[in-house]
């Protein structure tokens, strides 16, 4: 049985509160799982995993076999590795697409965490004129479909010579409204005024206070925000598809090119899909609980 503290950490306060209640009630009301809970969950899990498994089946096969057998055999064949290698070394530069994707995702995620924490610190703990309205403004911007500004954004990028440059994808994502809002909410709870006062007494200016107190206090939420931003950046397609060219592709754009290829070997195409999923899958296995916790915490708060 997990401790409620652990639940709080992984699944947020609401979940922890609920768990505490459940424990107090000695098992709770609907809390005792029945066998069908597991059966149904297994089915759901099967559906979640199936398309990926199907991709692996095709990726481990060869073009002819795939074309002749619309219903693939249920076990993977042996060509996965050779197909993956062939895709990575093909003319569509998958290898640099992987590197580019990692670069873009890491830089944007770090930057979002940094700037969002900075703003979140200010919004939650500092007093300044217009704070409430500015925060409302930030929240309101989340409802603005900024994707629809692609045309002027493209014109701007063309003016500054960033067409086909990774900068054009990185810079617009350096800080997000969601991040600011998220960190504001978190720091509001997690950062006691006493700590700030103490830092101020020690003669820290606000930037130093941020570095010594706010940043460390936001580690948990920062990690979640990092993961969210990373996934978002990794899976982003529309804008990179418009602005990236030639040598500087990210993975989704490289995948699109793979699909529009003129000789289609579906074992290679699906290998490309598998390659694009693996890095994030590894990250997910390592840090998936944080992502789960983040989504649930966000839900209770937001």
């Amino acid at each position: 049985m997990q401790s409620t503290a652990a639940i709080e950490q992984f699944a947020g306060k609401g979940a922890a509160r609920a768990a505490r209640r459940r424990l107090k009630g000695g098992g709770g009301v609907d809390a005792r799982p029945r066998w069908w809970n597991y059966v149904l969950l297994a089915v759901v899990l099967g559906i979640s995993i199936f398309p990926l498994y199907y991709a692996i089946l095709l990726a481990s096969s060869d073009a002819g076999t795939i074309a002749r057998n619309p219903i693939p055999s249920v076990l993977p064949q042996g060509n996965l590795l050779s197909n993956v290698i062939e895709v990575i070394t093909s003319d569509i530069d998958f290898w640099s697409a992987i590197v580019n994707s990692v670069l873009v995702a890491v830089v944007t995620s770090l930057s979002v965490v940094f700037f969002a924490t900075l703003a979140g610190f200010a919004f939650s703990k500092l007093r300044f004129r217009g704070r409430k309205w500015l925060l409302l403004f930030v929240i309101a911007t989340m409802a603005v479909p900024v994707q629809l500004g692609v045309i002027p954004l493209f014109i701007i990028m063309a003016k500054v010579g960033w067409v086909g440059d990774l900068k054009a994808v990185i810079v617009p994502g350096l800080v997000t409204a969601f991040g600011v809002f998220w960190m504001t909410q978190y720091l509001d709870d997690a950062l006691p005024y006493e700590l700030i006062e103490a830092a101020r007494m020690d003669g820290c200016n606000l930037l130093q206070t941020y570095g010594h107190v706010a940043l460390p206090a936001s580690r948990g939420a920062g990690a979640m925000l990092f993961l969210f931003t990373f996934v978002g950046s990794w899976t982003n397609f529309f804008w990179p598809f418009i602005i990236l060219r030639g040598e500087s592709l990210t993975l989704p754009v490289a995948l699109q090119q793979l699909q529009s290829s003129y000789f289609k070997d579906y074992s290679l195409i699906m290998s490309g899909v598998v390659v694009s999923v693996i890095p994030l899958l590894l990250l997910f296995i390592l840090a998936g609980r944080q992502l789960v916790g983040g989504i649930m915490a966000g839900a209770v708060k937001g």
């Binding site: 969950l41 996934v231 997910f284």
Partner: peptide, 25 residues
Amino acid sequence: LDANLRAKTFWRMGVLVPFIVAPVA
């Protein structure tokens, strides 16, 4: 999912797997 399941985190992560696959893929 709202039950005292065994291996809670496993099931929760399991349903989240599709989220990390890019729409293009």
